[in-house]
Design a protein around this nucleic acid. Structure first.
Length: 204
DNA sequence: GTATGGATTGTC
DNA sequence: ACAATCCATACT
C-alpha cells in the first residue's frame, strides 16, 4: 500500500503543493470499485492575489467557502453547467487557495473509468476515446466519479484521498494557465505545472 | 426576479 | 469556430 498524504502535505504554499502533487496518485474507492490516477498536470489558484481565482480578493461566498477552510479538502464545482472540476485546498485555514487537477494518467480501474465516461468497457473504446479518458479537468472528474457530492470532502480520511507516487522520474514543465482570458495580469502567472512528454497532459 | 458568463468538452 | 447547459453571482 502506498502512503496516504497527510494534512501537513497540503499545509504549505500553494505553488509548492502544486509542484509536489505531480506524480502523486488520486484514489477513489467506490461501491463499483477502486480507481487510481497519477497526477500529470496541475494549476495553482491563490485568492489573495489572483484574478483568475474564484476566491480573488478573498471573496467569500457559499461556493468559495471550502477554500477558506483547513487544507487537504476537496473543492469541486460545476463548470459550464456540464462538467466538474476537482481542486485541492491548500495553505492555512483562512487563506483561500487551491490547486486544480487538470489531468491524470489512469493507473487502476480503467474499466470503471471507461464505463463512467462512455458507458462502454475499456476494450470497446476507440483509440481516441482511450486517449481522452482523463486528459482534462472535466474528463478526469467524469472518469473517476468526482462530482459535487465530494465538495468539502476531507482528503486525509475516508475513501477519496491522495497517496505518494511511484519512483518513476519525470521532468516538470512550467507554463501559463489554461482558459483564464478574463484574468488580466494573472493570465501570465507561471502557475501551471505538468510532466514533460506525458501523453495524458491536456495540451502542451 | 433578472441577467450574465464560465479554471470545459465534443462536434462541426 | 461554436453550441451545450445550468448554477453561482451580481444587480434591480
Amino acid at each position: 500500500m502506498k502512503y496516504k498524504l497527510d494534512r501537513s502535505f497540503y499545509h504549505r504554499s500553494t505553488l509548492e503543493v502544486a509542484r509536489q502533487l505531480l506524480g502523486r496518485e488520486i484514489v477513489h474507492e467506490t461501491a463499483s470499485g477502486m480507481m487510481r490516477g497519477r497526477i500529470v498536470e496541475a494549476e495553482a489558484y491563490i485568492g489573495a492575489i489572483d484574478k483568475a481565482a474564484h476566491c480573488y480578493q478573498n471573496k467569500r461566498t457559499p461556493r468559495t467557502e471550502v477554500m477558506f477552510g483547513p487544507p487537504g479538502h476537496a473543492y469541486v464545482y460545476l463548470i459550464y453547467g456540464m462538467y466538474h472540476c476537482f481542486n485541492i485546498v491548500t495553505q492555512a485555514e483562512g487563506e483561500a487557495a487551491a490547486v486544480l487537477i487538470r489531468a491524470v494518467e489512469p493507473i487502476e480501474g480503467m474499466t470503471l473509468m471507461a464505463n463512467n465516461r462512455y458507458g462502454k468497457s475499456i476494450g470497446d473504446l476507440t483509440k481516441a476515446q482511450v486517449k481522452n479518458l482523463t486528459n482534462g479537468p472535466g474528463k478526469l472528474c467524469a472518469a473517476m466519479g468526482i462530482d459535487k457530492g465530494l465538495n468539502g470532502a476531507d482528503l486525509c480520511s475516508g475513501s477519496f484521498y491522495l497517496t505518494e507516487g511511484n519512483d518513476e522520474p519525470f521532468e516538470m514543465i512550467i507554463s501559463k494557465r489554461i482558459n483564464i482570458d478574463y484574468a488580466e495580469e494573472a493570465i501570465d502567472f507561471p502557475w501551471r505545472f505538468y510532466i514533460k512528454d506525458n501523453p495524458h497532459v491536456s495540451r502542451t
